[in-house]
Design a protein around this nucleic acid. Sequence first.
DNA 1: TTAATAGTTTGCAGTGAGTGCAAGTTTGTT
DNA 2: AACAAACTTGCACTCACTGCAAACTATTAA
Lengths: 213, 213
Amino acid sequence: MRERKKRETRAALAEAALRLALDKGPDNVTVEEIAEAADVSVRTFFNYFPHKEHAILGRNPEHLERALDRMRTAPAAESPLTTMWFVVDDVLRDLEREGELSRRGELIMSSPSLVYQLMMSSFEDERLLTAGLAERMGEPGGSVRAALIVSASGAACRVAMELHKTAPERSVRDLVAEGFHVLADGLDPGFAPTVPDDTTTNHTMPEEQEGPS
Amino acid sequence: MRERKKRETRAALAEAALRLALDKGPDNVTVEEIAEAADVSVRTFFNYFPHKEHAILGRNPEHLERALDRMRTAPAAESPLTTMWFVVDDVLRDLEREGELSRRGELIMSSPSLVYQLMMSSFEDERLLTAGLAERMGEPGGSVRAALIVSASGAACRVAMELHKTAPERSVRDLVAEGFHVLADGLDPGFAPTVPDDTTTNHTMPEEQEGPS
DNA sequence: TTAATAGTTTGCAGTGAGTGCAAGTTTGTT
DNA sequence: AACAAACTTGCACTCACTGCAAACTATTAA
């Protein structure tokens, strides 16, 4: 079966990439090494992954399908963030089962370029999930709330991975759960921006000379 | 004066990078072209900017400093998300101002990837912001809430950029503000995960999306 | 003015990512 | 067995980026 072979090759590459990245640090691994470790040519590597980082992230395209499915088949009464929780929880359970969560998670969070890639590749997923969620919620496509629920859920995941690094006694899933509760209840009941549109605020610090940023 | 010459060269490179990026699209510019346009060698370009994008963005290293400063000098009574709002608002005002005044701002605002790069480099070290905020809040370093406030603020920004693309009549700053309010008040009052810790749940399928896949 | 010196620029050589192409190999089908 | 589709691979190429050492230039001391 071709499908099977492709999946095997993909897995072998992802596995090799992860192992080598853990060994030598994500920036000291070359595609050549990864390809060699997986017994394929460098060129073939790039048939599977557009970037080196994608291989280390080891994202499985099927998972998004299942996520969208879970969202579509969720009970009508389920609140939107609750739905997102189950979607995320499914991932976490899967990763925990494979025992790869902390290995890979820690690695990712330790490397800015990996975090960047993770976010980048999450964006497309987030867009689809947002669309699905907005539909479920009966809100217009441009709903800030729907988009925020998805996007902030991703943020909660990243935060959890980050904190898990320094507090390994708390499981990632536990930390994510806490994050979801905080998000659900409100980040800050005291939020009160007194828009300093013109004057009298000491926060109107001047600006820079070079371009933006 | 050497200082002056360095600043001139830097400006020339940034300017050339911007002009070429506007002309040919940010992805179709080579460092060689930029260097040539600024009358320096390619090698010299890399003495000034670590990456091509930095030149296009004309990134100012002071930005993070300013953000942290704003955070440190915030009134004690200011709630944490409010503080984040002012920090973010500061950046957005820059962009809006530059967007009006300079071609660079326009280019950045027109290109999601550049906007994202900009936000990322502005928040280069989210950990610093998180640490600063946690300290302000008198919470331990591993505070989920502090980390989430910073991280979710970033999410709100990205959501705003994204929505602004399809709904240009709403300003990015306006959309970000709405996002902050949603985050402050709570994403979902109905959040109620019926923790399926052991059995019988039909939602226990592995899955993917945000987490490291 | 001249000579030492410290800061800058540059060429060069090299690594490594990533792409397009065309030829070769495997796998599935008739 | 013959054929086509899918997959792999080598090759040649562009480009980003780095380290090194030579060359250049402004600054300072004598």
